[in-house]
């Protein structure tokens, strides 16, 4: 009996032992940088290679106030949300439409495997390369898109897409939409396949059509997955860097500048204002943490 007790006790230590690499790596490479970033937001740390910095004594929240009053930061925060909304709404609408089509029992669509592979493909391609590719495709005056528009007679002359704020925003939103609708569709289809088929059978017996089945059974049962998709997409959107930086470096006139590019520019492009970049990072951290809490509660429910 004593032996048995000893044995279970000795096994527990392996739980700690085997989690140790994760815990150490997390503390060193993830948690410490979080704390370090938070502290830097309260310091005078600026200039390349400066390791001799001090906590601000007279005005602790100076960097945060500077950032929150900074017109460029406000613009970038607005752009980040606008670009996300511009891509998410069409993305979720198309993904839901395709989900309804691909899971319909009445109208079975052939070649679904092929369509899924093709629709998801852009998601896996390097965002930096995709951004530059689209910049070239929408080139002025001799880019492929202009070539098509002029050849088809839709425009008499080439259009300078990348020089126009609205056009640039729509192009970036389109790229994001184009890269992510396939992903969202696959997640939603797997969600629909997880719904109890008996519910659908009952609906069929009751004579519900595709449209009614979709709104009254599919959508309510997908609520958790839809919320999860919304939040994770928003967190991804709030971090968008590659697309904005590589498509046109936030231009024209900061109209496509995201907060991530703003932070990068503060810290690494010329001015080396690490303290302000850290303060901006922490503001974004709080916004993202707020949305993460929602996901946390969702995942906890799914766990049980």
């Amino acid at each position: 009996m004593t032996l048995q007790k000893n044995k279970t006790f000795s096994y527990a230590k392996y739980g700690y032992l085997f989690s140790l690499p994760f815990i150490i790596a997390y503390l060193v490479f993830h948690l410490y940088p979080i704390i370090y970033t938070a502290i830097l937001g309260f310091t005078d740390c600026k200039g390349l290679g400066n390791t001799n910095w001090h906590i601000l004594k007279d005005d602790l929240w100076k960097n945060f106030r500077t950032i929150l009053n900074n017109a460029t930061f406000k613009t970038s925060l607005k752009n980040t949300f606008v670009l996300w909304i511009m891509n998410f709404i069409p993305q979720i609408v198309l993904a839901l439409l395709l989900t309804a089509w691909f899971t319909s029992k009445r109208n079975v669509i052939k070649g679904q495997g092929f369509f899924k592979v093709v629709f998801y493909m852009p998601n896996i391609i390097t965002a930096a390369s995709v951004a530059i590719l689209f910049n070239v495709l929408f080139g002025y005056p001799k880019g492929p898109v202009n070539d098509i528009l002029v050849s088809l007679g839709l425009r008499s002359d080439a259009y300078y897409f990348t020089n126009n704020a609205t056009a640039s925003r729509w192009i970036i939103a389109f790229i994001q939409f184009w890269m992510w609708y396939g992903y969202t569709m696959i997640i939603l289809i797997s969600g629909v396949l997880g719904i109890n088929p008996e519910i659908y059978e009952a609906a069929e017996i009751d004579g519900a059509n595709d449209w009614q089945t979709f709104w009254q059974i599919t959508i309510p049962n997908l609520r958790t997955i839809l919320t999860y998709t919304l939040i994770t997409s928003m967190i991804g959107g709030l971090n968008m860097y590659d697309m904005s930086k590589m498509f046109n470096n936030g231009n024209p006139n900061n109209s496509t500048l995201t907060t991530s590019v703003f932070i990068y520019n503060q810290a690494f492009a010329g001015s080396y204002m690490y303290n302000r970049a850290a303060a901006a990072s922490m503001i974004m951290f709080v916004i993202i943490a707020f949305f993460s809490v929602i996901v946390f509660y969702l995942m906890r429910d799914r766990k049980s």
Binding site: H30, I34, Y36, I288, F296
Partner: peptide, 10 residues
Amino acid sequence: MIPAQITSIG
């Protein structure tokens, strides 16, 4: 859900 990018300055 914490993205590594957000703590990149530290």
